[in-house]
Design a binder for these strands. Structure first.
Length: 904
RNA sequence: GGGCGCAUAGCUCAGCGGUAGAGCGCUUGCCUUACAAGCAAGAUGUCACUGGUUCGAUCCCAGUUGUGCCCACCA
């Protein structure tokens, strides 16, 4: 393809429609045999000029899976590297947050695999008890049915069907993303093996006294009709009503405040602080409870804050956790006035009313009696809601199973304190400690149907007779035996995930080889729900924490840092962007935003930019192939290498070392930035541009350069592969003829460094940029050839004259050459004949500006160097640096003045 | 009510004692032997505010303001 200056002005832009040419065709056509060293550039014209990810990603992925690259062998002699996936809920599909974490996990395991580890990334899903049950109930509701209509067995069957459908969708998304997981080890928290793990742990804990049954106040969701744990309650500021109520008669009156007036039906005492002088006379007295026929005692309890309100508190032990404690201390009756749906059951006029209706009705009734002293409305206060359905939580007295957390949490905390598990970034560990050091007992029973049935059987009198597995449930229902109808909190089974997925309770080779896992990659938002619980179970069951490192990620947000949520309408389906720009583009964008522990904003423009980068890699490699870049044979000796070669190889090793550091430290944003900068700016712009001159000249230097370019691309593609697996696979196999970059060796630093070449190329870049700037300032067309004389003798630039001429469109000085502009750069001179072209005014302005900058620099540096305190206290390298800066400022000033003078 | 974090270019974010950085966006010119999804050149910042430590502060310390998140049984 030629592009002479004689070509028509409106030469048609290169046809960009490449629909007919598929990338797959290219990769197949160019699959080289071993004998084709340097030859698989044969059909460069067949290479499309744009990378079309959709054509190739799916096929590549299936090929990887078929070849078993992602399957891990427990009997292998290689050292293990293990990550278990945070199992996505089967409630729906993967969102960008999953795509983000999966990208990091995939990159980590891909790199380790290349480094020669037996890398296992274990996939699976979570049955997500309450969440999934709710989804299916919603579906049923649309059909006008309830789960009760179906009955337990049919309902559970229905949930399994849901799991098949949505689970399949999730697995498809993972393949699309390129997740290199071991599909042969896919697990589900309700699998038979995992269920056995759940039962086994339950029994062990029961036997150890760590699981018990107790009647207490729990968080009850009147819609889901189940108990939930403390962390499943979301508090938010709601508008309520605070009323002050007068109880009792005459001198035996008290004034209490409440936001939940309906609970007064269940009051069994009024409490005051034992030392409150105002109320000593009331302690022990009986007070009449309005709207009922009961009298209730006044008790003294130090929980009451005399400073707050009236210092008199109504006590409802069956409907408030604090009151429950007061009730226990004073042996008060527990009067339940509501059923599981929040409907009043206390006999009387309010019976059958919903709790909120009852609230207004009771306040109205009391108001009529003149017992409402003060009403604050609205009254903003914090109210708990069910995290699954947002219904207001009703504290409820109820018999539940509990985990005694203290000993487990202590061990989980110690594992981190002793450094057996590291939390990354380290400052996130305070969150973890806050939690494990203050955790209350955990309610694990749920009044749901979807989940692991509690493995406990009761006898006719309701006594626990058997805890499985390993014990035969004694009699049938006819004899009065029955299994506990409740299921376990979903986090109970996901807490076992790191070892239940590896075969525990059996001592499998997998468990032996892959436990404890290397790193947990997950969001900081589930430290309490999941991370802490895995740590507790891991240390308890295996006596070893489940991870060496916990790498916490932030949350994915939109391009303005706003939370993605359905109500904002800013939720993006990862598939949408993958379809438009390719999986690699999405992955690279997500990796670029991954600063440890901080949230990750992402916008479509950014994905587009990453797609451009993928395309750039594509085209640079395409250029290299067209010019015979090769990986065949050993690298030429340093003696044969040009300065450009030595520079780029030296940089390659530096970047490799840097990249390794970032991979090891989960610094994906820095990793991506470093690799993009190196590949695009240094390799694709400078090295490739310089190599054009070398290739044009031919001969041995061209051969050397071809080999070096092949080397640099080979290594760069391998370094990029864990993050952008698809484009690198396509190009790497084409370039090297290797089987797959997935199983290629991770590059190693050869130790080669050449700082001298680095300085030489820096000078060259500086010179070229300087002249380009001049050209741009002078309004010279980029393609316009300018006669020039180069005086480079005695400078590092001398070897690069041809390259400089090509990059700057300089042609040899012909007859009548007349230098009208002379640019001294790095001791050399580039004299240009710009007769009739040069804009003296523009040039003078440019020089004046530079001069001012140089003078400012001189003033600054001289000021510092004249400061004795500075000289005395600053470290030598800083002083030297400043001295150098002053030196070059002085030189610049002299040069600029001379140039200005010459302009007249 | 406690605790933690953040305030740097138009946007999203790095940097964290010694000349202010990136990506995107913006301006100008350009189809230049791969790439216009590109190339070249360029503009843009009282590094929130006020004090302090220091020869020197965007960086350390204190306070102020703004902002975000987590935890908590205040009737």
């Amino acid at each position: 393809m030629t592009r002479g200056s004689a070509a028509p002005v409106h030469k048609p832009i290169r046809d960009r429609d490449i629909g007919a040419r598929t990338l797959a065709a290219v990769t197949e056509n160019t699959q080289p045999g071993p004998e084709s060293h340097g030859q698989h550039t044969a059909t460069p014209a067949d290479l499309p000029t744009q990378y079309a990810p959709a054509e190739v990603e799916g096929k590549l992925y299936e090929r990887w899976v078929e070849r078993g690259y992602f399957e891990a062998d427990p009997k292998s002699g290689k050292p293990p590297y293990t990550i278990v996936i945070p199992p996505p809920n089967v409630t729906g599909s993967l969102h960008l947050g999953h795509a983000f974490q999966h990208t990091l996990m995939d990159a980590l395991t891909r790199r380790k695999r290349m480094q020669g580890y037996e890398a296992l990334w274990l996939p699976g899903m979570d049955h997500a008890g309450i969440a999934t049950q709710n989804k299916v109930e919603q579906q049923l509701a649309e059909e006008g049915k309830s789960r009760q209509d179906l009955g337990r067995e049919a309902f559970v069957e229905r949930v399994w069907r849901w799991k098949e459908e949505y689970g399949g969708k999730i697995l498809g998304q993972m393949r699309r993303l390129g997740d290199g997981v071991d599909w042969s080890r896919e697990r589900f928290t309700m699998d038979e093996g995992l269920s056995r793990a759940v039962q086994t742990v339950f029994k062990k804990m029961y036997d150890d006294g760590l699981i018990y049954r107790a009647e207490r106040i729990i968080n009850w969701c009147p819609r889901c009709l189940t108990a939930i744990s403390d962390i499943e309650v979301e508090y938010q500021e709601d508008d309520g009503e605070l009323v002050q109520l007068k109880y009792g008669e005459g001198d035996k009156t008290v004034v209490v405040a409440t936001t939940r007036a309906e609970t007064m039906l269940g009051d069994t005492a009024v409490a005051v602080h034992p030392d409150d002088p105002r109320y000593q006379h009331l302690i022990g007295e009986q007070i009449r409870l309005p709207l009922t026929d009961r009298t209730i005692p006044v008790v003294a309890d130090s929980h009451v804050d005399p400073e707050f309100g009236t210092g008199q508190v109504k006590v409802t032990p069956a409907h408030d956790p604090n009151d429950f404690e007061i009730g226990r201390r004073h042996d008060l009756p527990m009067v339940t006035v509501m059923d599981e749906r929040g409907v009043i059951t206390a006999p009387g006029p309010f019976e059958g009313l919903d709790r909120f209706e009852a609230r207004s009705a009771i306040v109205a009734a009391l108001r009529e009696q003149g017992r409402v002293l003060e009403e604050k409305r609205p009254y903003r206060h914090s109210v708990g809601h069910c995290s699954r359905c947002k219904t207001t939580i009703e504290p409820r007295l109820s018999m539940q199973w509990w985990v005694k957390v203290a000993p487990l949490a202590r061990a989980a905390g110690d594992a981190v304190r002793e450094g057996r598990t590291k939390i990354h970034p380290a400052d996130m560990s305070s969150r973890y400690f806050d939690w494990v050091d203050n955790m209350h007992d955990w309610t694990i029973s749920r009044q749901l149907w979807w989940g692991h049935r509690i493995p406990v059987w009761y006898g006719p009198a309701g006594e626990v007779v058997c805890v499985g597995p390993g014990e035969e449930p004694p009699g049938g229902e006819a004899e009065g035996w029955h299994q506990d109808p409740d299921v376990l909190d979903t986090w109970f089974s996901s807490g076992l995930w790191p070892f239940s997925t590896l075969g525990w309770p059996d001592e499998t080779p997998e468990l032996e080889k892959f436990y404890a896992t290397d790193v947990l990659v997950t969001g900081y938002d589930i430290i309490f729900f999941w991370v802490a619980r895995m740590m507790m179970f891991g240390t308890y069951v295996r006596d070893e924490p489940p991870f060496h490192t916990i790498a916490l990620t932030g949350l994915v947000r939109d391009e303005h840092g706003k939370k993605m949520s359905k109500s904002f309408g800013n939720v993006v389906d990862p598939l949408e962007w993958m379809d438009a720009y390719g999986s690699d583009a999405l992955r690279f964008t997500l990796a670029s935003g991954a600063n440890p522990g901080t949230d990750v904003p992402i916008g479509e423009d950014w994905v587009k930019a990453s797609r451009n980068f993928a395309n750039k890699i594509w085209n640079a490699t395409r250029f290299a192939l067209m010019n015979g870049a090769t990986v065949a044979g050993p690298l030429p000796d340093a003696g044969e290498l040009a300065a450009t070669d030595r520079w780029i190889l030296s940089r390659l090793n530096e970047v490799l070392a840097e990249a390794d550091g970032y991979y090891d430290d989960y610094q994906f944003a820095k990793l991506s930035d470093t690799l993009r900068h190196f590949a695009w700016d240094e390799v694709f712009d400078w090295y490739v541009e310089l190599s054009k001159t070398t290739f044009a000249k031919g001969g041995r230097p061209a051969e050397v350069s071809r080999r070096v370019l092949g080397e640099v691309l080979d290594v760069t593609l391998r370094l990029l592969h864990p993050v952008v697996p698809f484009v690198t696979e396509t190009l790497w196999t084409t370039l090297t003829g290797g089987e797959s970059v997935v199983v290629a060796d991770w590059p190693k630093d050869s130790g080669f460094r050449d700082a001298e070449a680095g300085r030489e190329i820096a000078t060259l870049q500086q010179a070229v940029t300087e002249v380009r700037r001049f050209r741009a300032d002078q309004g010279l067309q980029p393609g316009q050839k300018v006669p020039a004389e180069l005086a480079l003798e005695g400078t590092p630039l001398v070897a690069h004259e041809d390259a400089i001429r090509q990059l700057l469109r300089l042609q040899p000085a012909g007859e009548g050459f007349q230098a009208t502009a002379s640019l001294p750069v790095a001791g050399a001179t580039v004299a240009l004949d710009l007769s009739g072209v040069i804009d003296v005014e523009a040039e003078r302005k440019r020089l004046a500006k530079d001069l001012a900058a140089a003078e400012k620099e001189l003033a600054q540096t001289s000021g510092k160097l004249g400061n004795e305190a500075f000289l005395a206290k600053a470290p030598d390298h800083v002083v030297d640096k400043i001295r150098t800066r002053r030196g070059s400022a002085e030189a610049d000033i002299a040069r600029l003045k001379e140039q200005l003078e010459r302009l007249g």
